[in-house]
Design a protein around this nucleic acid. Structure first.
Lengths: 213, 213, 213, 213
DNA sequence: AATGAATGAGAATTCATTCAT
DNA sequence: TATGAATGAATTCTCATTCAT
């Protein structure tokens, strides 16, 4: 994770800019975001953004780095390689789920970056995301070696975990809105309560060799 | 699916505008798309867009309708309710996969619409997407009744199928680019060949009650 | 001379923009010129400049081309190679003088371009200016061959002709302003009446081999 | 020459600012110069410029005064009124030439000041420049009285000396660049070696009454 | 004196939309 | 229908100048 932030930023202006930018870019995407609006929400003079961080693109890069740059290290902290693969997988899934819950900007930004093919992702971010998948790959490999798991592509397992969490998180508002329109009894009222829990069960059933109930 | 398209559009100008708009909105999103560019690629005068379709928003709505408006009917055509649930599920997955392959604008547009919470989706589109999930719900319900499937939320199964397909499709270019940078032997070289096939297997293992190999 | 000007520009908007830009760039230089002001003086909407010509730099290039692009052809029209060298030199000097008188933007623009080392001059302009000096070189060469002229560097003769004309033209206002301040009898009141005529005499005395009065 | 410079400026900050400003204004002109850049190159804090000198305009005035303010006194030191007019003229020309060579900021600044009509020149500068011309006028007057020189406008002689030197100095880089492009054998390769020497000869031939070789 | 931060008024450029023909 | 031109409201970015410490 790259930080241009100066060390004696006492007023926290850098953090205010970044927080405001995260919200704006998450809400509207790069093209839709307004530098004026970021300044307004950060309650600073617009020129300060250029003074402290740089142009819109640099600002966006700062947002990407701050959002995705250290995800891998969080995961590494939680995973312990002497644990059983199933235990690690459970931790992995929960860590992903919690990270998304605690960083609501992740879903929209990741969705839009994926939409544009991730062409502009900073290398640090690509590296961080790659590392996270590598951790999953390692867990799966151990599980296969201990004969607990079926072999499976770590990429696919990763995205069967992460992308539904992201999609469902983002769709939540729409869905509940629809329930109100369509009324209960409708299919939409089958919206699951604990999404992460259900996904975990399904992934375990898909991977585990022992018969699951 | 709503069509403003006049019936005597012999020159095909409406279709040219729509095709160009689909490409532009898919590539750059609503905010990033340029009306000038859509006109240029459609090889028509910019004012014609306003004459034939309306403003940028109407144009985007037309794109959404044309892209997502009749997905449900395609699915309905392929599913037959006298077939076995497992067979229908297989068809369902393949239909989704083929639809995405044949409509490359679906992933980016769906990702960005999801990012913005789908707030601006036309009702027809919401209805179409809802219908597709209802079809899946029906298949799953039959499978539970015949004791073939574990019960599961159709929403979650739907997004565990669709969203990885979309993510992986969009990430393809980035991933292959990364392979070239990081070299083979890297985790990224484990990119799966037949994504849809692997996802199908995993979903079946997650759902099926009989012991899977 | 390059013209981007479309051929059916009936309202003459291109010419209005160009005329206004010539004035503004001549008065304030590239950095000091204001696109808003150019639009205001041309009585057109600012965006029209971008529509018809392009950005500030393109506009400046258009000004340079229009001002300097065809100077050589004017000179070529006036010089006749069957005339005597002295006659051609006289015509040359008068053509330069008249060109400057009729194009008051030439002195300030040329001064500022010279100040910045001419680094950004379009090739057409460099070519045109080079051609003009080549014509002088040819005249001088003929004069040397007919034993009328002393040999001399055409570059130096050129600039001993052109640059004093330009400087004195620009200084005129300042000088007369100074006369008013300092009063007559001052050195400044010796300001020459017919500058071109005096320069012509001096150049002829400097070049001619026969004794001059 | 006016100096705001305080006498206890031990750190030489005033001189550093001035040197940096001279370079910046010479390179880019008043409108193109950046106060930030001047501070950066002087390696001082930007606010120090305002503290020590004042705003951009004051800074520019300081540059003008420092560059042009004492030119007349240098000339006065070199000219001796008991020498022959021809000798003094020779010294005059050489002094001008050397002054330009030793103060490379003079050509660009003088060119741009001339371009803008010298409207903003401080009175000291105008006075200094006027004095220099008066010295030349005196030399010429003596030459006419001793029957050595033809009568001539001192303004014109002055600018036939100074302005070609300035133009040719500034054009040097461009010209040599052009030689590389156009190749030798081209007119541009006739670029003179000792410009000042050639100009001196020409001016003497133009002024002298005795027949020159 | 000296510094980093802050401010506000521009200045260039873009772009959706409309108009005249 | 079709076109090129026109418009005006943004939008990004810059820069001289000032402030607080």
């Amino acid at each position: 994770m790259v930080k241009t932030k100066s060390k004696k930023d006492k007023s926290g202006i850098y953090d205010r800019i970044l927080a405001s930018a995260i919200k704006e870019f998450a809400d509207k995407g790069f093209a839709g975001a307004r530098v004026d609006e970021i300044a307004r929400q950060a309650k600073i003079n617009k020129a300060m953004i250029y003074y402290h961080i740089g142009d819109k693109e640099s600002l966006y890069t700062a947002v990407l780095n701050s959002t995705f740059g250290n995800l891998a290290s969080v995961m590494e902290k939680n995973i312990a390689w002497d644990k059983l693969p199933a235990e690690n997988l459970r931790i992995y899934i929960q860590t992903v789920s919690e990270t998304i819950r605690e960083n609501p900007q992740i879903p929209p930004i990741m969705l839009r970056e994926t939409a544009s093919g991730g062409k502009n992702l900073p290398v640090e971010v690509v590296h961080s995301l790659t590392s996270i998948i590598e951790i999953l790959a390692q867990i799966l490999k151990q599980g296969v070696e201990t004969n607990e798991f079926h072999p499976a592509s770590s990429f696919i397992i990763y995205f069967m975990l992460v992308s539904p969490l992201i999609f469902l998180k983002q769709m939540g508002a729409l869905i509940h809105h629809q329930i109100n329109i369509l009324g209960p009894g409708n299919i939409i009222s089958q919206w699951p309560d604990d999404i992460a829990q259900e996904i975990e069960s399904l992934i375990f059933r898909a991977l585990s060799k022992k018969i699951n109930s």
